[in-house]
Amino acid sequence: MKKVIISLFITISGLLFSQIAVGTSPENNNRWTFGGGIGVGFGSNSAFYLQASPRVGYKIINDLEGGILGSVSWQTSDFYRSTMFGVGPFVNYYFARSFYVSANYQHYFINYKDKYYDFKMNKNEDALYLGGGYMQRIGNNSFMQIGLMYNVLWKENSSIFSSGLIPNIGFVVGL
């Protein structure tokens, strides 16, 4: 079931991105924005990581955007398996058409299984990310965003995450 959900999430994100990128132009007065990111990682002990984070936004005013962001990630190795779903609102403020500041709240649903110790855990965790970054134009109204966020709710001994600092790379169409 998890593989079906992840595959569906990635397919829908790709279709949305490709449909919007082809049909938009600078003259388009549509206030909706679409985007997100996809990540893949490999490591020792047969580690594999897959992540997708689609987003839908609405331009409230020219330089202010709000919307909803989702994320799903799947990790596996010889020793553990983890699935994480997250959803929440975001707001971005753009300035000088090349930079942005951002805030987003995510509520995560985490399922973790340690294969070595036969330990299972289901946990919920909240995150409030604050940060910003740089935007590079890659098309008419399409941008690549490169930024750095910090989870101000992160606590070292009680969080599933190893750090509160999160680098991010994503794409946005419709700005």
Rank of each mutant, 00 (worst) to 15 (best):
I110A: 07
M121Q: 14
T76R: 08
N104K: 03
V101G: 12
L69R: 09
F95L: 13
Q75E: 15
G43I: 11
R97K: 15
K115M: 05
G67E: 13
G41F: 02
T83M: 07
V22G: 06
F42I: 09
G57P: 02
D118T: 04
I38E: 08
F99E: 15
F48A: 14
G139C: 03
Y100P: 00
P26V: 15
F119V: 11
M144R: 13
N104L: 09
V72M: 10
M135Y: 00
Y100I: 04
T76K: 12
N124G: 11
G133M: 05
Y117R: 06
L148S: 08
N122Q: 15
W74V: 08
D118H: 09
T76N: 08
Y134P: 14
P54F: 01
Y117T: 12
S25M: 06
G37Q: 05
F85H: 10
G67S: 04
Q106G: 02
S98N: 08
R55P: 00
Y134E: 06
V40H: 03
N111L: 12
Q75H: 06
G88Q: 04
F90C: 09
N111P: 11
V101E: 12
T83A: 12
F34P: 00
L69P: 01
N104F: 08
V72K: 09
Y105S: 07
N92G: 11
Y112C: 13
Y100V: 14
P26L: 15
S102N: 12
G36P: 11
I110K: 01
N111V: 11
G70C: 02
G70N: 07
G36R: 06
I110N: 12
G36N: 12
V91L: 07
M84Q: 14
F90Q: 09
V22H: 06
G43V: 04
G35Y: 01
